[in-house]
Computed example of a mutant assay.
Amino acid sequence: MPTMTFIMKDGTPKVVDAPNGLSVMEIAQKHDIEQIEGACGGSLACATCHVYVHPDWWDKVLPDTGDVSMEEEDMLDLAFDLQKTSRLSCQIMMRDELDGLVVALPGSNPAWS
């Protein structure tokens, strides 16, 4: 099973199992990562699942179009402490190619930001 790492707000990494077919938001909720609220349930109607994607993973988490959708961009405008690698975790679907994915929670100030 793929795994992924969440960089927590205090900077510590949390490695978790990340089943294919689940969104990063769903994976966070499954592992009780409370900062990923997902208030809209993944319907792209809020920004409560905002994360920073490690730059090494940025191109791999983009949709097939090669860019974040206009709808996601609009929601990201509402996010706290937006960074250039910000994404909504509900829009990143886990698959084998993302095994080892690293994302950071807002407020964690990852070294790459």
Rank of each mutant, 00 (worst) to 15 (best):
M1L: 10
M1N: 08
M1G: 15
T3I: 02
T3G: 09
M4I: 08
T5H: 06
T5F: 08
F6Y: 12
F6P: 10
F6H: 02
F6W: 11
I7F: 01
I7L: 10
M8V: 03
M8R: 11
M8N: 11
M8Y: 00
K9Y: 11
D10L: 11
G11L: 14
G11T: 12
P13E: 02
K14L: 15
K14I: 09
V15Y: 09
V16A: 14
V16H: 12
V16I: 14
A18I: 03
P19V: 10
N20G: 15
G21M: 03
L22S: 06
S23I: 06
S23F: 01
V24H: 00
E26C: 07
A28K: 05
A28T: 08
K30S: 15
K30A: 15
I33D: 01
E34A: 13
E34C: 07
E34V: 09
I36L: 01
E37P: 02
E37T: 07
E37H: 08
G38T: 01
A39I: 02
G41L: 00
G42D: 06
S43T: 15
S43V: 08
S43Q: 11
A45P: 15
A45W: 10
C46M: 12
C46V: 10
C46I: 00
A47M: 09
A47V: 02
C49R: 01
C49W: 05
H50P: 11
H50A: 08
V51Q: 01
V51S: 03
V51D: 00
V53L: 02
H54S: 11
H54I: 06
P55W: 00
W57Y: 12
W58I: 09
D59T: 13
D59R: 11
K60G: 08
K60N: 14
K60I: 05
L62S: 04
P63H: 03
D64P: 03
T65W: 03
T65D: 14
G66Y: 00
G66K: 01
V68Q: 06
S69V: 12
S69Y: 12
S69M: 10
M70F: 11
M70L: 15
E71Y: 04
E72H: 02
E72Q: 15
D74C: 13
M75E: 14
L76P: 14
L76N: 15
L76C: 13
L78Q: 13
A79I: 03
F80W: 13
F80Y: 14
F80C: 09
D81P: 08
Q83V: 03
Q83L: 05
Q83Y: 03
K84F: 07
K84P: 04
K84Q: 01
K84N: 12
K84W: 04
S86R: 10
R87Y: 00
L88Q: 12
S89D: 06
Q91E: 07
I92E: 07
I92G: 03
M93K: 13
M93L: 15
M93I: 15
M94E: 02
R95Q: 13
R95P: 05
E97K: 03
L98E: 05
L98M: 10
D99P: 05
D99L: 01
L101M: 09
V102M: 07
A104I: 09
A104W: 00
L105H: 02
P106Y: 06
P106H: 06
G107A: 05
G107K: 03
G107C: 08
S108Y: 04
S108R: 09
P110M: 00
A111P: 07
A111R: 01
W112T: 00
S113D: 03
